[in-house]
Amino acid sequence: MTITVNRRPVEHVEGETVGDLLKRMKYSFPLVVVKIDGRVIAKSAFSSTPIEDGSSVDVIHLTSGG
């Protein structure tokens, strides 16, 4: 029962959503792009998208400036 978050193994929690995972990982940074197994998850779907066991999650943090 393991998922991968930013290439590190993390315990899988049944029924956990993207939003829950971000909280559990203490990713409080407001500006992120999330991909699960290469698929982009819209921010509006964070609280309704469950994370399946074995998923590979990328949480890409973005800092402003340019």
């Binding site: 500006l31 792009v33 982009v40 819209a42 921010k43 973005l62 800092t63 402003s64 400036g65 340019g66």
Partner: peptide, 20 residues
């Protein structure tokens, strides 16, 4: 090449979703 991070994240997300 945007400056505000909120627009940056929304832009990247939208381009990847709409122009995969």
């Amino acid at each position: 090449a945007l400056d505000r991070a909120s627009t940056k994240a929304a832009f990247i997300e939208e381009v990847m979703l709409r122009l995969p």
